[in-house]
Computed example of a mutant assay.
Amino acid sequence: MAVNWLARLAAAAPAPVFTCIGPGIQAAVERLCLSPALDRVATPRAAAILLVAGEIPDHAQEALDRVHDQVPHPRQTFRWDGTGDPEPALRDLWRDLAAGGDTETDRRPDAPPNDWCGVGPHGQGGKGMMGGTPYGRPMAMTADDPRDGLALDAYTARLGPFVPMLPPGLVLEVTLQGDVIVSAEVRAAPFAQPDDASAPDFCAARMLRLVGLPRDADRVARGARLRAITALRAIPEGLGRHDGQDARGRLAGWLAGERGPEAAPALATLLPGLEWSEAMLVINSFSPATLAHVAISKEDA
């Protein structure tokens, strides 16, 4: 009896959805997620429905499968091509899952990328407790912190193409010491999006969410005008200066209805030295149309 009551209570809540967005559909997804019936969660672990929007390119399929397998059971995938209103179907799917409906099995094998073989010639392990790539994941190694010279662990990882705070399709390889970016390389440019994804309202809304103002972000995305003085003051002056304007200035321009700069930034030079939260603000202070032309590192070009 209690289980049935909890299931009904859960079904009445907004459907927890994690989005994986392909080319040409970003604005449609952002409009859809303004619905109070949907909860666009920040991690697959908090979702029940994986919303796959648009046609995902072949090179991103493995990443999509990895995201899918992080969604806890019971789970289902909902594919949307951007036409029609998917909200009723998403609500029905969520009610079914909340009642214990069918779940999808994993798409990837539940195994590490590399077997653990101890110290060896193939990079599985280093000497003692240091170095190597145990189970395919490189260990963090100490290096001088660029701010004060203290020796901190430096960790390198690839992020994307479906990280929520990054534009869909963008893949970054970053080396971090604590929350500070030591180096950054673009491994894949964002997916091409329609012109309305770069509309000032949507661009401003993305930055407002990053500074912790989701309600203001929703209002702006729906077309309301907002001064957002608090948000502007939350962005350090001079952060991400590019082509004569910083991130705060780009947000102010979007809030005023301006389209913003068109020159693609060199993210590999803009991001090092920034804390993680600052770097995300800098990236999102450029429109999808601008970031579509960002330079890709030579080894991946």
Rank of each mutant, 00 (worst) to 15 (best):
L150I: 09
A27N: 02
G260I: 10
D196G: 03
R225D: 14
G128D: 03
W5Y: 11
A231F: 01
P74I: 13
L172Y: 06
G136N: 01
F202N: 05
I229W: 04
H59R: 15
A27E: 06
M165D: 14
R248V: 05
P113A: 12
E262G: 11
D216M: 06
G120K: 04
E262N: 08
P194G: 00
V52N: 03
P72I: 10
L176Q: 05
G273C: 06
D246A: 01
R147D: 10
V282A: 07
P57E: 12
T230K: 12
V182M: 04
W276Y: 09
P265V: 09
A264M: 09
I25G: 06
A10T: 12
G84L: 07
R219I: 00
W254F: 12
D81L: 04
P146F: 06
K298I: 06
A221K: 05
I49V: 15
A157V: 15
E237M: 09
P138E: 15
D243V: 05
D144N: 11
Q193P: 04
I181D: 00
A199S: 13
A295L: 11
I21S: 07
V220A: 00
D196C: 07
R66A: 14
V71R: 08
G82E: 02
G120S: 13
T156S: 14
A292F: 03
C33Q: 14
D196T: 13
L267F: 04
R248T: 02
P14T: 10
F78C: 01
G54Y: 04
R147V: 06
P236N: 10
S277G: 05
D39M: 08
D195S: 11
T103A: 13
V41D: 09
D92K: 12
R107A: 01
T230C: 01
D300R: 15
N4W: 06
P161Q: 03
L213Y: 00
W276F: 04
Q124K: 03
D85L: 07
H293D: 15
T230F: 09
A268I: 03
L34K: 11
L267N: 09
